[in-house]
Design a protein around this nucleic acid. Sequence first.
DNA 1: AACGTAAGGATCGTTGAACAATTCGACAAG
DNA 2: CTTGTCGAATTGTTCAACGATCCTTACGTT
Lengths: 223, 223
Amino acid sequence: MVADLSQDRPRLGRSSTAERVADILRDRISEGFFPPGQRLSEESISEALGVSRNTLREAFRLLGHERLLDHRLNRGVFVRLPSAADVSDLYRVRRVLEGAAVRRAPDETELATIGEAVRDAERAAAKDDWQAVGTANIRFHQALVSLIGSPRIDEAMRQLLAELRLVFHVMENPRAFHEPFVDRNRTLLELIASGGPDEAAAYLDDYLDHAERLLIHAFEPSR
Amino acid sequence: MVADLSQDRPRLGRSSTAERVADILRDRISEGFFPPGQRLSEESISEALGVSRNTLREAFRLLGHERLLDHRLNRGVFVRLPSAADVSDLYRVRRVLEGAAVRRAPDETELATIGEAVRDAERAAAKDDWQAVGTANIRFHQALVSLIGSPRIDEAMRQLLAELRLVFHVMENPRAFHEPFVDRNRTLLELIASGGPDEAAAYLDDYLDHAERLLIHAFEPSR
DNA sequence: AACGTAAGGATCGTTGAACAATTCGACAAG
DNA sequence: CTTGTCGAATTGTTCAACGATCCTTACGTT
């Protein structure tokens, strides 16, 4: 019973103003409050958040390493504005990670977690809440990759999806993008559950190809 | 002709004291000058390097994000001391990344780069220079993963290998560890070149299993 | 001897101010 | 229209300071 406490351990170190500032900024960027390309002024933000410039700069370094911010010397930090090449690369990584994930045999609880994400997406889609669909979709892929069972890969996937969110913000209408994938997630889940790794992998490849093409298409013209 | 200059663009941003400090510390950690577990005092290091504490702290954040440093609140930063669980996870990631890599069809120049790393390792082994063998070995796997063609994965692999170096520093004799893998690298290269993805993948799995077991074994008793 | 507590020193966390370095736009000169 | 120059604004970096936290040691209690 004492061993269970070890799970709460990460929360102990939980503090440091810089990290909390980073959390706030990350959320703001994620939700589009700070749109891609926008410059984040040290002075105004440090004042708005009530922290010193030095502390804010530490937070900037954190987010820069997560590729959410672009740090240009003597020019300041900007919300990262992904390029088409970035999108391609993100999908290259997804193919590797998710491809490895669908080949794992999931246990019951893992399957349930993924299924929940699928159901949430379906529910949100029924309500035309595309913001929520996007969130559920992200949860789906996060849970999918977690089948690999590697904390480092989970972390990498978290970052990747955060970066992908950046991409969505530069598109004109993300809703049209998410719509077709609600059903695909359901199908993919069933293929995984039925235990045909090759079928699931093939379906996933097609899934990602389609998504990438759609994204690049909705992306290029705007430049 | 002016367009070609845009390739030199990354070199422009190249500066910032914090990043240069991070580079120095990264090298020092890599070479074992700062052994795993050692605490890095802000005051002494900032003084030794002639930079302010604030700048040094920015560098610390960078390296902390690369998992080379362990940042404990109010206690300072320590060179990361990997656990057996970390080793397992690192190999889990390697299986995914390198497994995806060996299934790619490499072109001539890529094959040559990998081959060079193999040859360097063989040469160094002949001279009993196990430090150099380790370096060449790392180059081998880095080149292998670069077959995927993803900058993000290359970067992730770079970090992973740096972290793995940390593991080597806690072992009593790394030389005994590297020795058997010189030949294996050669074999793996030939399997890749001959174009049998499944064979190469199978060999790689065995390779990594073996390496992980060896590492865990040489690791556990010392705790 | 085991334990709780208190005091002290060391170090980190964070701040605020200061100054140098750099960028960028405006404006004048050619 | 291009090129040089100036100045405002912002970042890069340093410095000194103070509170907060941790570690150690010592001390007294049970």
